[in-house]
């Protein structure tokens, strides 16, 4: 057993025991990593331009599949969530949106976990879902 008994990645990733803020934290990481992976892939994908039309078209064939479209829809979702939640974090991390510090009354409800923040998280998730649907609509010309 490790000396520090750190919870480890499983503890970090397990969002179930705490509130929606912990879920948001976890989604932020996953979407960030996902977007970075997509971004690297996208750079590689577009580099096929330089090898001419045939190379470009065969690359397109690889990505213009059902799986490719679902993946792209996911990327849109990740992008929207990461942006929405990211803006929330930037505002919060600058110290705005908690009201004032004050003597707390039992039972304690931390004002950093307030409705404004929770709402922003839910809205970010909602917007991500809408954007994914819209994206799929565009890709399938609905």
């Amino acid at each position: 057993m490790e000396k520090d008994r750190k919870e480890g990645i499983r503890g970090m990733a397990n969002p179930g025991r705490y509130g929606i803020e912990r879920v948001a934290y976890w989604l932020m990481r996953i979407t960030g990593l996902g977007l970075l992976a997509y971004f690297i892939g996208h750079i590689y994908e577009t580099s096929s331009l330089l090898d001419g039309k045939a190379a470009w078209n065969s690359m397109l064939e690889l990505t213009q599949t059902t799986e490719g479209h679902i993946f792209l829809a996911l990327v849109i979702g990740m992008c929207v969530f990461h942006t929405g939640n990211g803006i929330r974090l930037m505002i919060a991390e600058a110290g705005f949106g908690f009201g004032k510090a004050r003597r707390p009354d039992y039972p304690y409800t931390p004002s950093s976990l307030n409705m404004k923040n929770k709402l922003c998280i839910y809205v970010s998730i909602g917007l991500a879902a809408l954007a994914m649907m819209y994206g799929l609509g565009v890709m399938y010309d609905v």
Binding site: Y18, G19, E21, R22, A24, Y25, W26, M28, R29, L89, A92, E93, P110, S112, L113
Partner: peptide
């Protein structure tokens, strides 16, 4: 990263 678990 403001997961808020500490405050919870």
């Amino acid at each position: 990263h403001f997961a808020g678990s500490c405050s919870q």
